[in-house]
Simulated scan of single mutants.
Amino acid sequence: MKIGLYFGTFNPIHVGHLIIANHMAEHADLDQVWMVVTPHNPLKKKNTLLDDYHRLQMVHLATEDFPKIKPSDIEFKLSQPNYTVNTLVHLQEKYPNYEFSLIMGEDNLKSLRKWKNYEAILENHEIYVYPRLEAKDQPGEAVSSEVANLELRNHPKIHMIDAPVVEISATFIRENIKKGKNVQPLLPANVWEYIDHNNFYKK
């Protein structure tokens, strides 16, 4: 079975995440997409990040009607701070008959060379990339970044997927809940009900 891993804090999960996950499940050569909820890094300030299990529960609620999309808490069990390469090794040991791939936005592809053991990731796993609005380079970085990005885009393990460009921000959602604005169209209905019932993001 071929599994695409879509990592995120999902704070909260919103319709943009679901559009990407569903597009990958239906249009890339993947059997399932696992939405891997990233746990709070104890070395970082918590800020507005909800408890790990509340975010996982929202992913459960959001994906219950999508049989090809599954929530995953696999990183909750790994020591922190964690790296993607460690998660991949752990998953491959736990599910030796599954083939794991990564799903990422084009903005993350630009920084892939900065990831721990990125060469090992590319050697052993395919990467499915969805388009994002252009992230701005720092002055002087544009040319070298573009060359590196072009090399990666042409890598045999990297697949550029013509998914919809969805620019819905979880930060925008949190900020507008705090302001008392209506954000219901941006969230699955049961996720909105969970947030509203628990008074999340209002402070």
Rank of each mutant, 00 (worst) to 15 (best):
A189D: 15
P67F: 09
H54V: 11
A148H: 06
V36H: 03
E64P: 01
D65Q: 14
K178T: 11
N176H: 15
I13C: 01
N47Q: 15
I173A: 03
P96S: 12
M24E: 04
I19N: 05
F10A: 02
F100H: 03
Y194Q: 05
V147Q: 13
V59F: 05
N108I: 03
H23S: 09
K68E: 09
K46M: 11
L18G: 01
D65G: 10
M160Y: 09
N198M: 11
K110D: 08
E119Y: 08
Y6K: 02
P12S: 05
W115F: 08
K94V: 09
E167G: 06
W34F: 14
L43E: 13
N190F: 02
V165P: 00
E26C: 10
L18S: 03
W192K: 01
H90I: 04
K202W: 08
H197I: 02
E167Q: 13
G4D: 06
K114E: 13
L78P: 00
I173Y: 04
H14C: 05
V166L: 11
E64S: 14
V85T: 10
K178E: 15
A120I: 14
A142Q: 13
N108C: 12
E193C: 04
F10R: 00
Y95Q: 09
P156D: 12
P81G: 08
H40P: 05
A170H: 00
L78T: 05
A28S: 14
N176V: 07
L30T: 03
I161R: 00
P188Q: 04
G16I: 05
P67T: 03
